[in-house]
């Protein structure tokens, strides 16, 4: 139950970070066009995107992220039961690979269209992958801490 809860929190964390990347990439471009971007607009846009990408989209971003992230992290978790020593690094890498796979493979499902606009650039892909890494790190730190506590 604890693991399941950690997976959901980890996915939520990655979702928030990916929305942040998406909003930032948009606002950075608008700023480069001379549009007046201020701190209020940044927060407003971020929260609107967070709600919009999860409630207005046909496929909520959170669900889109949950799927590969949970599979990836659970693979590492299963390896733990098989006696392989768990390290936070493995979970972190698993989270990064899951999101990298998502942003690379998603356009293939949509005829090369990038459904997450912020992932169209290499920088966007890198930052989203880092989001996955952070999500994996969070989950890994919870798992490793739990394992040490039970020992």
């Amino acid at each position: 139950m604890r693991t399941f809860f950690d997976l959901l929190i980890s996915s939520l964390l990655v979702t928030i970070l990916i929305v942040l990347v998406n909003t930032s990439s948009n606002l950075i471009w608008l700023n480069s066009m001379g549009m007046p971007i201020n701190i209020t607009l940044i927060f407003k846009s971020f929260f609107q995107d967070l709600i919009g990408m999860n409630l207005s989209s046909e496929i909520p971003l959170y669900l889109l992220i949950c799927f590969p992230l949970i599979i990836s992290l659970m693979v590492i978790k299963i390896l733990v039961f098989r006696g392989i020593s768990p390290k936070i690094l493995y979970y972190s890498l698993a989270g990064a690979v899951a999101i990298l796979a998502l942003v690379i493979l998603l356009p293939f499902a949509f005829d090369n269209v990038e459904p997450i606009a912020g992932s169209r650039t290499y920088m966007g892909k890198i930052f989203m992958t880092l989001s996955g890494l952070i999500g994996g790190y969070y989950f890994g730190s919870k798992q490793v801490r739990g394992l040490h506590a039970s020992n």
């Binding site: 948009n26 549009m35 607009l41 846009s45 919009g52 990408m53 999860n54 989209s57 046909e58």
Partner: peptide
Amino acid sequence: KDYNGSIISPFTEM
């Protein structure tokens, strides 16, 4: 808005 529900631009005029 974008099809993914995000804002494309918060501006409608300039």
